[in-house]
Design a protein around this nucleic acid. Structure first.
Length: 802
DNA sequence: TGCTGTACCATT
DNA sequence: ATGGTACAGCAC
């Protein structure tokens, strides 16, 4: 078993295979699958993952592994298998699948450097560059006087050499400790001998005579109100010593969480949790769909199920959409399980994420709460996987590997023989359909734990407002209600239902809209930098003073951004204190929580924001929720538009009147008759499900069919269309006759980064060979991809059809 | 003849 | 992805 099969860190389809390496003597005893290694690859050195050890290789000229980066495997055998499955299932590269399962800092950093080998003098330019040093970064060659040829010659001469370095991005946090190094009597002697002037040194030394334990340096400095120099003096005298010890960065101070006990369950909750507990007890794997209205106590069910898993000595993964939005969620888990919980989400720094990940890796915790990628937590005895708000789009990763966390969870659940819980007030249609077909087990929670009714939803027809001469974005009823609540000292949440919160600029004179020169999309105005930016390629230009097309100065930014609504709102109700929550006001780290805290402390009357305020917030003083434009998503070319609208309206309605004060919801719309709006206002999920299923059946969309989206891009418009056409043709040849292939169609954003994008959509019910077929097509186009810069990307379960 | 840009090719 | 190489084009 002295040969290792390695997946190397080269994201190219021609490299999407294992490479064999000899394991040198010094690594034979310790090298295991799942460890990272450094291997020579062509002229350079790169990182790779060992997936297997074998005895033989069909390749005869094997190179040796240059180094091993881990002492223990970072991928368990299960995760190695899962990575393979994931890559194949999503038609992605093995390397991208493995990288997706690990924290960012475990990815390799590559550097090149030049070493001076000979003492003899080099060319004047090279001498200047090295400036007496033996090693210099390779990058120093740029903007220097040295030309490439000189370097090549020097290398051939053996005067200098290029080194390829693989650097770890891992940084660890250390705390410095201070401790005495001599026996007590020696310290006492030293204290006597010390000059009377060194007051602080004496104090410190006296302290350590009574105290032989190591103490954190910073706390000593604080306690004695002194500085490092005092300590250094004692260290120099050989009386004290400092040493460093690694500590985890802990983003949450565990002690600040109030401990909670299990709550008494309602009858409904008990009925829902029973089969889950049974599953846990019997090591059985079922997928449970927990359909519970907001406030029905889903989280308590999660907590008590997890308790069973912990008692059994097993581990739990809890996925939440985006945890920084719900500090309440962290609080509940830390409150119940204390330091037995690791938290993984995008609000943490890379270092913090790594430390939390390591607490899982080292089995220091049994519970992980985190966003999408936490589904890969390296536990080996999983007892339960929970996906909260399972309908959320953020569980689908939109770049390679394009996976859905739900699929991964179910796969891991089957492997570990443990239950998977999908919880939501508005389950994804796919999930509910599966529950309906008894593929998943359905549990319904129809009542709130406090038995409060859901707030009344009043739908306001904005067309009538217009006819009545009200041209503002606030209906009369919303205005009156807001004033009434604010005067009573209650609070209001206002939701602007917009997917993009971008503001584009348009000339009022000629209608010219400023677009990105490289992409077919309007540029977005950014107030803080007064720049126009492209969200797709990061192109930037200053905000023009005059219209580039007609030179008029009537160029303004457009779009009903939250800023404009805020302005209108302060005009409409001058006494209201408005808190605006959007990308601009939440950009800074922690800004999000700060704003929410301000609102919780009643520093504002109205919280105005986009989708981000719809989820998981719980303010007891909020009695009115207003939705300004409920139908703005309905016109998007997205077959899930109705579903998303229904989900959003239901979620946001749950924000009002959760406590003692009764709540009310006002929904403004131009299409009050639309079933998603009408049924959301009645909280009728079942009716919505049935109606929407009919639509999906009629137009052949999921869950009636599976989708696959292939996007082809090329700098040349014609080439892009032609290649897509060819792909469509060869698909037609090999799929069943019931399968539908649409395309070539231009992608909704037809050009990005100067590349034209065409797509083809496959709608199928049963195509077991589809992935093989797509891979075959990929290979057919290998030449075009390598030589002529054609790009083909595949999404086996598209959520965003761009 | 020597320098520069580029297409192509292999990587265990 | 990325570095090496063969080769074409061009100035001297």
């Amino acid at each position: 078993m002295n040969i290792a099969k390695v997946i190397v860190d080269v994201p190219a389809s021609s490299i999407n295979q294992t490479f064999d390496y000899k394991i040198p003597e010094r690594f034979r005893a310790m090298l295991l699958p799942g460890m990272r290694v450094i291997v020579p690859f062509g002229p350079r050195k790169i990182m790779g993952y060992v997936v297997k050890r074998v005895n033989e290789s069909s390749f005869d000229k094997l190179k040796e592994i240059a180094d091993v980066l881990d002492l223990t495997p970072i991928l368990t055998p299960e995760l190695l298998e899962l990575g393979k499955w994931l890559a194949e299932k999503t038609v992605s590269l093995y390397i991208t699948a493995f990288q997706a399962m690990l924290p960012q800092v475990l990815k390799a950093n590559y550097k090149k450097e030049l070493e001076r080998l000979s003492r003899e003098s080099l060319s004047a330019e090279l001498e200047a560059l090295f400036a007496g040093r033996d090693f210099i970064p390779y990058g120093a060659l740029e903007n220097s006087q040295v030309n490439f040829h000189q370097v090549q010659k020097a290398i051939q001469n053996g005067d200098i050499a290029v080194h390829y370095l693989v650097k770890s991005r891992v940084t660890k946090k250390y705390v410095t400790y201070l401790k005495p190094t001599r026996e007590v009597h020696l310290l006492e002697e030293a204290l006597q001998d010390m000059s009377g002037r060194a007051k602080k040194q004496q104090e410190l030394l006296a302290f350590f005579i009574n105290q032989s334990q190591a103490i954190e340096l910073n706390s000593v400095l604080k306690q004695f109100k002194t500085t490092r120099s005092t300590v250094n003096a004692l260290v120099d005298k050989g009386l004290l010593a400092t040493f460093k010890q690694e500590v985890y960065r802990n983003p949450y101070d565990d002690h600040t969480f109030e401990e909670t006990e299990a709550l008494e369950l309602t009858v409904e909750q008990r009925e829902a949790i029973e089969p889950i507990k049974q599953n846990i007890k019997e090591n059985a794997h079922d997928v449970f769909l927990l359909h519970g209205v907001t406030g029905s106590g889903k989280t308590e069910i999660y907590l008590q199920a997890i308790q069973d898993v912990i008692d059994k000595g097993e581990e739990a993964i809890v996925l939440v959409p985006e945890i920084s939005l719900t500090p309440q969620m962290v609080k509940r888990f830390k409150g119940r399980f204390g330091s037995n919980v690791a938290v993984l989400h995008s609000g943490l720094s890379n270092g913090e994420k790594y430390d939390e990940w390591r607490r899982v890796h080292r089995r220091e915790v049994q519970v992980v709460v985190g966003a999408r990628s936490a589904v890969f937590a390296p536990f080996e005895n999983l007892g339960i996987i929970i996906i909260d708000e399972e309908h959320e789009n953020s569980y689908k990763q939109e770049d390679q590997p394009r996976y859905h966390a739900r699929d991964v969870a179910v796969h891991r659940g089957a492997y570990h023989h443990c239950p998977v819980i999908l919880g939501s007030a508005t389950p994804a249609l796919e999930s509910y359909a599966r529950a309906h077909k008894a593929v998943y087990k359905l549990s319904s929670l129809t009542r709130r734990t406090n038995d409060k009714a859901m707030p009344d939803v009043n739908v306001v027809d904005m067309r009538k407002e217009l006819h009545a001469g009200n041209r503002s974005m606030f209906s009369r009823s919303l205005k009156e209600n807001m004033e009434k609540r604010i005067n009573r000292g209650e609070q209001v949440v206002l939701l602007l239902n917009r997917r993009g919160y971008s503001t584009f600029i348009m000339c009022r004179e000629c209608g010219h809209v400023r677009e990105c020169p490289h992409c077919d999309i309007a540029l977005t105005y950014h107030k803080y930098s007064n720049q126009l930016k492209c969200h797709y390629c990061s192109y930037e230009e200053p905000m023009p003073l005059y219209c580039p097309s007609c030179n008029s100065d009537l160029i303004r930014f457009f779009g009903t951004g939250t800023q404009r609504i805020e302005e209108a709102l302060t005009k409409l109700i001058p006494q209201a204190r408005v808190l605006r929550m959007d990308v601009d006001t939440t950009r800074r780290k922690g800004a999000h929580e700060k704003l929410l805290n301000q609102f919780a402390n009643k520093k504002a009357d109205i919280l105005l924001g986009t989708q981000m305020i719809a989820k998981g917030l719980d303010f007891e003083n909020v009695t009115l929720v207003g939705v300004l434009t409920a139908d703005s998503m309905l016109n998007l070319p997205d077959f899930r538009a109705s579903e998303k609208t229904f989900q959003l309206l239901t979620q946001v309605s749950g924000r009002a009147g959760r406590h003692d004060l009764p709540g009310e919801v006002i929904v403004q719309t131009y299409t009050p008759e639309h079933y998603s709006i009408e049924l959301a206002s009645r909280y009728d999920y079942w009716q919505f499900y049935q109606q929407e299923m009919q639509m999906r059946k009629k137009f052949q969309y999921p869950p009636y069919v599976f989708l696959a989206l292939i996007t082809i891009s090329h700098e040349n418009h014609v080439k892009a269309v032609q290649s897509t056409q060819q792909i469509v043709k060869s698909l037609w040849k090999h799929v069943r006759k019931e399968t539908v292939i649409l395309g070539p169609t231009p992608s909704p954003i037809a050009r990005v980064k100067d590349r034209y994008r065409y797509q083809c959509m496959i709608k199928y019910k049963h195509e077991p060979e589809l992935r093989t077929l797509i891979n075959k097509i990929n290979r057919q186009f290998a030449d075009e991809i390598n030589k002529h810069d054609l790009q083909i990307s595949v999404d086996m379960q598209p959520y965003q059809l761009m």
